[in-house]
Design a protein around this nucleic acid. Structure first.
Length: 801
DNA sequence: ATAGGGTTAG
């Protein structure tokens, strides 16, 4: 019966159909012509005429609905067929499962397969590939393995189709060994089998195996097709293997694949990931057919390659000219661009759009929004949005945690990390890497060490970035030996590992160790970068290694082709200035190829204070003020220079100017971790619950200190007050409060680590030496520039900071 | 074929 005839029959006969075969023929015709409306009319008729009990008719009806992509209707009809009527109709089960496997929901495919087994329906060899496809999509290893067992039981282990599906399933689930095992047993592997295997290795970034596989495929006499190329391109991009990328591109041109949208998109994405944005753009421009994915890949490539403006231009163009409706992927890419540019206005606009389109509900888009607000520094908006997210995963928490860390609020990061664990979400690698800097910042050793144990238990310590974060954490928590241990145990050290360790030695005043490690680094063949030299030069500076510092500063551009940045000059000015070579420091500033900024002059001013050079101090101070910079610290330094020289009037004048200009000294804050809790103190602060005890302890210590010859160094006080008052003000400096609290809270044999946001004050530095004698404790203070290890009345900085 | 949070220095 032709379609036209069928249609005529349907419209004329209405209720005259009596033979079920007529229905069957009608439904077949509707299926062929894909006419949903007619088929539904037939459906109504057969319901009226009680043919709904005929399995044969219902079989046809189910297939009709499947072919019209009406899966729900198909399923409803399918379910009305009694099990007896479909027990031997595997083909119908297969069709339903196939439909689900192709169009979703995938778990329906798996569920239906379960029903089938439960009801004693024997699967055919066509059943397995569909179920496996669903398992691959769902990453359902358990069911997939059951299917594999059935395949073995049915003796289908060498069937190419089934085995290809098995390889694909294992590969997508990351069970590459299983995939390999099946793959090796297949007789008559074809291109699709190879592609499944190749795609699996590509998906899991196993670059080396991938290259061998593609070669193996060609040796077996099979030609890679466009799917093969498309599968390997992401891996090439990820490995930054430009040379192989170009080879793949050449192959595409030879085989005439390069005009294909999917291949073209893959190629341009690969080039962008390899950092060759211009190649990517050329492919994009000549590609005849572009779809939404092509545009997304191009725009995302621009973002990756730091051509963020170009990315937004392209986005505007496609939105305006092509009136494209952006997908969630596209929106995520554009939000990342906004984050990179800290373009919050556009970010908010896109956020509005995602609300309208419903994409906000997409977890990835939501997480990108969190990160966008965090990178723009509006942490309040981060929290509002984050708390409203219906679903949060470890990435959401990771974005908030690192958002807090990036905005200098490590304590909040600690709190969010705790909440995350309470809500039952396990931190993954990236979350931990993002969280560790919070521990580093706070010198929260107990939290940091806890993370370390967790990483060991979870087997995450093979990751270089994680080890780097651990090295840094131990350095910043004062545990330089633990840092070195972590460093030594880091396999695959990269430049960041070396930099972290060298910088760590530097801030601990272990300049020689830093230099020696720098030599090791070169011996092993790791190329130092600009950060390495910042760490190395500042290490020399903290340890007074003038000759070494000069030598490496000269070498960095000469032997390593790294042009010194302002930061490097800063280290050198610091190095020379501290060593008392004020003229050399001044000359270096004069020779700088870039204009010296406030930081440079401040470093020199600090040196002037140490070496009591009033004349140069005044000149430097003028330079600073002429830059229009509101460096409060500079007023303090200059005033200190005058006070130290006994020129009290000049010192007072500086303070008056400072006050008139409205500059306030940023408050000094110190903190200490006791049993995993951070206790913070501000100078003169009495808000701590144990304030009375702390004050009492400090008074006791003061009395003892005086007996040993301590005398308050009032040049470190800015206020115009009497000497006894000055003594009190100094006594309640934040670092002393924190130390006193630690003395009260920690058992006598435990070392104390106090952290301060500014540089430690000179009087406190002296006082702490006395306190180590009185309490017989080791006290470490980490200030804004380095560690001070106090022990038996001395500090390892040699009063040289 | 396109997408989210992460390590060093300043």
């Amino acid at each position: 019966m032709s379609c036209a005839t069928a249609r005529r029959v349907i419209s004329s006969t209405r209720s005259c159909v009596t033979d079920p075969h007529d229905y069957i023929r009608l439904l077949e015709a509707c299926t062929q012509s894909n006419s949903l409306a007619h088929g539904q009319t037939v459906h109504q008729h057969l319901v009226k005429n009680s043919y709904r009990d005929s399995p044969v008719v219902l079989d046809k009806l189910t297939r009709f609905y499947i072919s019209c992509h009406q899966l729900r209707l198909a399923r409803r009809v399918f379910d009305t067929i009694p099990i007896a009527g479909k027990k031997h109709n595997v083909i119908l089960w297969n069709q339903m499962i196939q439909a689900y496997a192709w169009n979703g929901p995938l778990n329906n495919a798996v569920e239906l397969y379960g029903n089938m087994i439960e009801n004693g329906v024997v699967p055919s060899k066509y059943t397995y590939p569909f179920v496996l496809k669903a398992c691959a999509g769902l990453q359902d290893v358990e069911v997939g393995k059951e299917v594999h067992e059935s395949v073995k039981r049915d003796g289908l282990e060498s069937d190419v189709y089934i085995c290809t599906a098995l390889v694909d399933f294992y590969a997508k689930c990351g069970c590459l060994d299983d995939a390999r095992e099946v793959f090796d047993k297949v007789c008559g592997r074809d291109v699709v089998t190879w592609n499944a295997m190749i795609a699996g290795f590509s998906l899991h970034g196993m670059h080396g195996d991938l290259v061998r596989l593609v070669a193996g495929m060609q040796e077996a006499g099979l030609r890679p097709n466009s799917s093969t190329v498309v599968a390997i391109l992401p891996a090439i991009g990820e490995a930054n293997a430009l040379w192989e990328g170009k080879a793949a591109h050449g192959y595409c041109v030879r085989r005439w694949f390069h005009g294909d949208v999917v291949v073209g998109t893959g190629l341009l994405d690969m080039y962008a990931k390899c950092g060759c944005l211009s190649y990517a753009r050329r492919i994009f421009d000549v590609l005849g057919v572009k779809n939404e994915v092509t545009w997304s890949a191009m725009i995302g490539g621009c973002v990756t390659c730091d051509s963020t403006r170009e990315a937004l231009e392209l986005f505007d163009r496609v939105m305006l000219e092509d009136a494209m409706i952006p997908s969630t992927v596209m929106l995520g890419i554009v939000l990342r661009a906004c984050a990179k540019l800290t373009d919050m206005r556009r970010g908010r606009r896109i956020h509005g759009y995602t609300i309208k389109s419903g994409s906000v509900l997409d977890l990835m888009v939501g997480n990108t929004l969190v990160s966008m607000y965090a990178k723009c520094g509006v942490i309040d908006d981060v929290m509002v949005f984050f708390s409203e997210m219906a679903f949060k995963d470890t990435v959401s928490y990771g974005a908030v945690i690192s958002g807090y860390v990036q905005n200098g609020n490590a304590e909040e990061a600690l709190e969010v990390f705790r909440k995350m664990q309470l809500s039952g979400i396990k931190p993954d690698l990236a979350t931990l890497i993002g969280f560790l800097p919070a521990c580093s910042h706070l010198a929260a050793l107990q939290h940091g060490a806890c993370v370390h144990s967790y990483c060991i238990v979870r087997g995450l310590t093979a990751d270089t970035s994680l080890c780097n974060a651990l090295i840094d954490m131990y350095c910043k928590c004062g545990k330089i030996d633990m840092a070195r241990l972590a460093f030594d145990r880091t396999s695959g050290k990269d430049v960041v590992s070396w930099n972290a360790m060298i910088g760590g030695y530097g801030v601990h005043g272990l300049g020689n160790e830093a230099v020696s490690l720098f030599h090791d680094m070169q011996a092993i063949g790791v190329k130092p970068d600009d950060v390495t030299f910042i760490g190395l030069l500042s290490a020399c500076s903290h340890s007074g290694l003038v000759a070494e510092g000069n030598c490496w500063f000269a070498a960095m551009s000469r032997d390593f082709s790294i042009l010194p940045r302002v930061e490097h000059y800063l280290c050198m000015v610091d190095l020379l200035g501290r060593a008392g070579l004020l003229n050399d420091a001044y000359n270096l500033i004069q020779k700088m190829p870039v204009r010296p900024d406030v930081r440079i002059w401040s470093a020199l001013l600090a040196a002037c204070r140490i070496h009591k050079d009033i004349e140069l101090g005044e000149e430097v101070s003028k330079n600073i003020q002429s830059l229009g910079a509101e460096g409060t610290g500079n007023f303090v330094l200059l005033s200190n220079i005058y006070s130290a020289a006994g020129r009290w009037n000049d010192a007072a004048n500086v303070r008056t100017v400072q006050r008139d200009k409205g500059y306030k000294k940023s408050p000094g804050c110190s903190w200490v971790e006791i049993n995993g809790v951070i206790h913070a103190f501000i100078g003169g602060d009495r808000s701590h619950p144990q304030s009375t005890l702390i004050t009492k302890k400090l008074d006791e210590l003061l009395a003892e200190m005086k007996k040993l010859g301590y005398c308050a160094e009032s040049s470190f006080v800015l206020h115009d007050v009497e000497d006894e008052e000055k003594e009190k003000i100094l006594l309640y400096h934040s670092e002393k409060l924190a130390v006193a609290f630690a003395v009260l809270s920690l058992s006598p044999n435990k070392p104390i680590l106090v952290t301060k946001n500014l540089r430690v004050c000179g009087d406190c530095h002296t006082a702490l030496k006395f306190i180590t004698i009185i309490t017989k404790r080791e006290i470490t203070v980490r200030d804004a520039s380095r560690f001070h290890h106090f022990r038996d009345g001395t500090c390892n900085c040699g009063d040289f900071w």
